[in-house]
Design a protein around this nucleic acid. Structure first.
Lengths: 99, 99
DNA sequence: GATATTGTTCTAAATTTTTCGAACACTCGT
DNA sequence: ACGAGTGTTCGAAAAATTTAGAACAATATC
């Protein structure tokens, strides 16, 4: 069973966050997860191949934006909202607003 | 005399902002400009060639982050702090904090 | 056990970004 | 007018990102 490592929020850099959120596909993923609680990859609204999506999820994880837990064969992901907001206040509000 | 067009802040997208601030060189430029008021390109702390710097300044301008006015042969740039904060609250504070 | 589902990893191609040299235009000081 | 300084633009190389097909591992379902 795959264990997803997530960085300590302390270790996440603003640069990594900015990069993670500079891609339309990843932005869409985060926006979706902010509304829908916990979702598996195949519930996410993308048109990319699964290998590509897997990569995007990795970028988001490494930027401290999401955490993923395995439930059976599925990896359920959520936004690390509370922690993230504590470290980078403002960002998620802007993402949510989305304009 | 070169006139620098700057976008209406309304037209700036979050994605463009995120991209602009995802580069270490550009991040450093903004941080410097936040402390130093108005600076010409050659006052900025970079190790890149001038053509490269010119490109970075373009990216920052297009993301609504800076404006540039000509004074003689120099282009003096400043952060569009007030406008930018009004549209994207939180971001500049995080950039300034810089950790 | 056989088959489908879920998602990762490897490898590589396509695309985008970053970079810079050289040529150019403009301003300033002399 | 000349030379130095400032920065843009063109053209192209280098580097990083995005993308996906195929093989794979693990779980779930029948």
């Amino acid at each position: 069973m795959k264990i997803y490592a997530q960085p300590d929020m302390e270790d996440v850099t603003l640069e990594a966050v900015m990069h993670a959120l500079s891609d339309p596909c990843r932005l869409k993923i985060i926006r979706t997860l902010m509304n829908e609680e916990e979702l598996a990859c195949n519930q996410l609204p993308t048109n990319v191949a699964k290998a590509t999506l897997s990569h995007h999820m990795d970028v988001l994880r490494n930027a401290g934006l999401i955490s993923t837990r395995m439930q059976g064969a599925k990896g359920l992901s959520t936004v690390r909202a509370e922690e993230f907001v504590a470290r980078f206040p403002g960002i998620l509000d802007l993402v949510k607003r989305g304009d």
